[in-house]
Computed example of a mutant assay.
Amino acid sequence: MKCRDEVTVSNDHVSSPAPSDQTLQQKSNRNGYLMLAVILGPMIAAYLVFKTGLGMPTGTINKGELLTPAKLLFELNATDVDGNAVNWDQFEAHWRFLVPIMSPCEADCEQALYLTRQVHKRLNEKYPKVARWVLVDRALWNPALAQTLANEYQDSETLLVDAAEWHQWLAQTNSRDAIYYMVDNQGFAMMFYQRQHSGNDLLADIKRMLKLTREH
């Protein structure tokens, strides 16, 4: 009787066979894929939402209108005012206000230039973190406009493009009646503003963006 008990106890302590190297490798691979999915999944989803607008929430805290899909400004065949092709790599990674002039600069254009300039000034110590661009249709570029921008819109960069290319560039977006845009620090136009937007709207948006990307 005692022997049978000892045998039973002994059997209770028999360990199961050790997993093979192949099983351990498969488990390790599964864990690695799972970790990769956890890390990259949200990043890929956020990128797709940002680029396509798919799944973008309708109620956001932004004052401006989200441009969907966001458009990379560097896709445009822009030149400087002397006709030299723009090397986009020369520009620092700043947030930017972009004012397009694709028709004679009248009330809306003048409002966009004035408002973006004043908001830029109101950034105070954050002024250097933001740049201003004016994008002008080549057919409209003339000495009078050049003088106006030099006098009233200092510290801005003026680039020339063909109006047809500009409109084609925006054709598949939701941009409508926009008088100026916000461009992120990677060169994507990602928000647009209409005449009803105030300077306070733009100021609130750019401050929020600078706070979110304060490392730049």
Results as ranks from 00 to 15, higher is better:
N124M: 14
N124I: 14
K126P: 03
K126T: 13
Y127Q: 07
Y127F: 08
P128M: 01
K129C: 04
V130K: 07
A131I: 02
R132P: 02
W133Q: 00
W133F: 11
V134M: 02
V136H: 04
D137H: 05
R138G: 06
R138V: 00
A139D: 07
L140G: 05
L140W: 14
L140H: 09
L140T: 08
L140Y: 08
P143Q: 14
P143L: 15
P143Y: 15
A144E: 12
A144G: 06
A144R: 10
A144N: 10
L145M: 15
A146D: 11
Q147H: 14
Q147V: 10
Q147D: 14
Q147F: 13
T148Y: 12
A150V: 11
E152P: 02
E152H: 11
Y153D: 03
Y153S: 03
Y153W: 06
Q154K: 09
Q154R: 08
D155A: 00
D155N: 03
S156Q: 02
T158K: 06
T158Q: 08
L159G: 08
D162N: 13
A164H: 11
A164N: 12
Q168H: 02
Q168D: 13
W169P: 06
W169F: 13
L170N: 12
A171Y: 04
Q172D: 14
T173D: 08
S175M: 06
S175L: 05
